[in-house]
């Protein structure tokens, strides 16, 4: 299972939430900005707990924020 198998809509969701900055999202999710940058770029697949926290920040179900591509 490669890390590229999990994609996300964080960048778009940030834009639709009053152009929330990466730092603001990081503060609300309880991580550093570096981690949000890595997740957005697809360089890091977050833990299930962090994925839920990020989804909760946007008020969305987790599957609307993160998608798993099972074609691989």
């Amino acid at each position: 299972m490669g890390k590229d198998a999990i994609s996300n809509q964080i960048r778009i969701l940030r834009f639709h939430h009053n152009e929330m900055t990466q730092q603001q999202l990081a503060d609300r999710a309880g991580v550093t900005r570096q981690t949000i940058v890595a997740i957005e770029k697809g360089n890091y697949s977050p833990s299930l707990e962090l994925a839920f926290r990020i989804a909760r920040v946007f008020g969305k179900p987790i599957e609307e924020v993160f998608q798993y591509d099972d074609k691989q």
Partner: peptide
Amino acid sequence: EPSFEDELD
């Protein structure tokens, strides 16, 4: 400096 280490760190 970040005041904590998160899961990625």
